[in-house]
Design a protein around this nucleic acid. Structure first.
Length: 114
DNA sequence: AAGTTGACGAAAT
DNA sequence: AATTTCGCCAACT
């Protein structure tokens, strides 16, 4: 029966394999820590940091998207203000920044590793 | 089927 | 240091 699925990626496969894998890694990030899009992609065996960001844009609502940031410690584009509240609530170390979005995440102190 | 997009990364300018 | 360009990968139209 599973073979009867009309669409191979919209019936049995709750969400594409990729999406599920990305959400699994993001959900595995402990509070107070963060990982970069490139790191998440690397853990999946892919180098598509953009592909990971795409998953967050589509399903980020179902995962702690604020724990996934860009390289350099910058928060996701357009969501810096919202992410900042989560960091303070989780105890994530932040660094003051005059420019950017007003703050930066201390990757050197809380970059999650596997 | 092909082209475009996207919550990115890194290097070059 | 900031901006621009190219590269990567997967999904959407």
């Amino acid at each position: 029966m599973s073979a009867a699925g009309a669409d191979p990626a919209t019936d049995d496969d709750v969400f594409g394999t990729f999406v599920d894998a990305v959400l699994a890694v993001v959900a595995d990030i402990p509070p107070g820590c963060v990982a970069t899009y490139g790191d998440v992609a690397a853990l999946l065996g892919s180098r598509g940091a953009r592909a990971v960001g795409r998953v967050m844009a589509l399903h980020g609502s179902d995962a702690p998207w604020w724990r996934v940031i860009r390289a350099g410690g910058h928060p996701p584009a357009g969501h810096a203000a919202s992410a900042r509240r989560h960091y303070e609530a989780e105890g994530t170390p932040l660094l003051p920044a005059a420019n950017d979005d007003g703050y930066r995440v201390d990757l050197a102190a809380c970059r999650w590793r596997r």
